[in-house]
Design a protein around this nucleic acid. Sequence first.
RNA 1: GGCGCCGUGGCCGAGUGGCUAGGCAAGGGUCUGCAAAACCCUCUACAGCGGUUCGAGUCCGCUCGGCGCCUCCA
Length: 515
Amino acid sequence: MPDHTFRLYNALTREVEPLVPSQKSEDGSPLLRFYSCGPTVYSYAHIGNFRTFLTADLIVRTAKAIGWEVNYVSNVTDVGHLTEDDTADAFGEDRMAKALKSKEGEQFANVWDLARHYTGALMADWQALNLKEPTIRPRATEHVREQIRAVEVLLANGHAYETDDGVYFDVPSFPDYGKLSGNTNIEELVVGSASDSRDVVVDEGKRDPRDFALWKKDDAHLMQWHSPFGWGFPGWHLECSVMAQKYLGETIDLHGGGEDLRFPHHDCEIAQAEAITNKPFARHWSHTRFLQVEGKKMSKRDGNFLTVHDLTAAVEDGGRSDWGAPIDPLALRLSLISGHYGKPFNFTQAALKVAAKNIQKYRHADDAVRESLEANREGGDNLKSPLGDAYADARAAMCDDLNTPEALAAAYRGVNAILSHHRQEPLSSIAAQAASDFLERINSLLGIIRHETDIEVKSRDNDALAEQVDALIAHRTEARSSKDWARADEIRDELDALGVEIMDLPTGTTWRNKL
RNA sequence: GGCGCCGUGGCCGAGUGGCUAGGCAAGGGUCUGCAAAACCCUCUACAGCGGUUCGAGUCCGCUCGGCGCCUCCA
């Protein structure tokens, strides 16, 4: 394995710089220790969540492609994320409890039930979009003991204090606070929020407006634990740093999340973790930009929210027909990774259609290659070298701050070479093997050709449809051989009505679902 | 007010000072009963104005325009 540099924008230094694993795995290869902030499971994950998770996924895939091992931890937040947490204040309502009271929440017996449901939905979406499973996916509620211990340490070493309402981190005791976001000037922060004529509620017991909750005392809360500071629940910022350190060590290589987490969440994590260990918490920080939908910011307020479920579910299951549901999950994946993670991305129907078309192109190549492997034809190899180059280009692009557009361009070059050669002359066994290797490697780098986990998306309905289509095609082939063009075209119209598109190839007629 | 991003051909979107990114659409072709699909060919742009340079989409300055986070939200 040649020496590879994986360059990634580091929010801490504001520069694209090499990502450097500080440890080795058992076999001596570099070991990347990576924590990516996961979602609060109070609802279905939306496509913006997944843009962030996909960035993490691509980081993991790229690291593996250059021979690294990855310890990849991504959490599930199922307690403590308050609606007003982003003010660094923590006076709002718990998102989980609030969700339970909403209309969708009525179907759940309690918050635990709700969390279980949406965690399951998250995992299903995760698989459908072909994301690698994290090495560990810890839940906040399963690490309350560790969080309480962290609060105790912070109280003991003078970085936290207790009030009637809870335990707060003492921001002035940590002079580096805000170093990640650049929000170091408290007056400017206050001016900024005040300019929105927003009510800034400050807990009376807090010593500094920036101080944030480590523990909230609340013996009426739906999720509560006993602690030395009374019944209550841990602050949202605490879980990530505690779980990251538990599973990855005191100083981790890389920490990522959505851009909104940069401040205050990540600055708070840094403060907590470093106040405990006196060591750097993470050496590299990465944030994924928000996406827009048809040029507008996706926002719950405006209701232009798109969940993965909205797009990939059948219409009977709540899929959105105005968005063409059910969309091929891989097309959604391709669409979401077609822009650079560090730039705002505009998610549009037009782009989604393009992605669906290109996914078909990959499938077409994949099918051709499988067929050629089985056919075992004689002949030389004219593909190995161009495909080797294309893969190397794709990987190099990914190592260059996850330049997905350029990586995809290289992947297209490769796929076009395969299709082009195959068109001229069906692939020889040896060329097909080269093509198969290429598709395999591109797939493990970008995940856009086939699912790695064998999830069966096929339903019984689809099987029934397949039988029906095959029968119709057989009739049409008969009609064509007797030159009954009217009958043949009639059958084609019937297939069209079923949403099926047919292709008359030299080898026979094949079909696929229309885009 | 603080922190940050962007303006590239019909559209999306790379471009790390000097050689055609790529995709989609469009036009032309090959194939085909027709159609579709597939494959082949064509399509040279960098918001404006200055500057640095032998040479700038790429660096610097200014102008104009758009956007994000700091608040729901990844």
